[in-house]
């Protein structure tokens, strides 16, 4: 009995010492995961995940404090990539239905209604709105991420979201659809 306890204690002490040494020797600082998560996020800075921007959300996800399926603009694609990155099971954004990435939109100010209150300029996370007090505001379409934060901020409801149209430069080839693919896809999923 005594010898059994002694042997186990001996084992524990020796192995504990080795591990303690290793934990000092192989100490790791920082977390490269945050960078990878942030690179996956669409950077709209919309705050729909409940965090004040993409970086804080990435930090929360890396720390395990937030689910990876909270990014609404990224939709299921981003949720899927994050789940894969974290090695957890994929859950669709916003319940079982799942949301695909929304068509890309930009905000548009109806310039005849705008009263020049600068309320939208203050909330725009990427400084995509130009204008000054009492002057009409305009949205620069290129930097606009379509986060919709300016829409509720406007006191006269002059901001609307318009989809970004396709032109020859941004046009994409479609996934080839041919007879048998259509037939195969007709089978019930799930």
């Amino acid at each position: 009995m005594i010898s059994a306890i002694l042997v186990m204690v001996l084992l524990a002490v020796v192995l504990g010492a080795v591990l303690g040494f290793a934990s000092i020797k192989f100490k790791v600082e920082g977390n490269p995961l945050v960078e990878k998560i942030e690179a996956t996020l669409p950077q709209t800075q919309c705050g729909q995940c409940g965090f004040a921007g993409c970086r804080p959300y990435a930090e929360a996800v890396a720390a395990g404090q937030a689910e990876p399926n909270k990014c609404v603009p990224g939709g299921d694609n981003v949720a899927k990539n994050l789940a894969e990155l974290l090695g957890v099971e994929f859950k669709p954004v916003g319940g079982d239905e799942g949301v695909g990435p929304k068509p890309r939109m930009v905000a548009f100010i109806d310039e005849s209604t705008c009263i020049g209150c600068t309320a939208c300029i203050k909330v725009c996370p990427v400084d995509a709105i130009v204008g000054t007090t009492k002057m009409m505001h305009t949205i620069l379409a290129t930097p606009c991420t379509g986060c919709e934060l300016c829409v509720p901020a406007c006191p006269v409801n002059c901001i609307s979201m318009i989809p970004v149209g396709q032109n020859i430069a941004t046009w994409k080839w479609q996934y080839p659809v041919f007879e048998l693919t259509v037939m195969a896809n007709r089978r019930p999923e799930k």
Binding site: S3, A4, M8, L11, L15, V18, L19, V28
Partner: peptide
Amino acid sequence: LSYLRTLSFIVVIAAIVQFTEMFIRK
């Protein structure tokens, strides 16, 4: 003490895995 075999093997393995984990993380 051969009846302690399974127990002590598990302790040894757990320690080695811990060590490997730290090593790979680094």
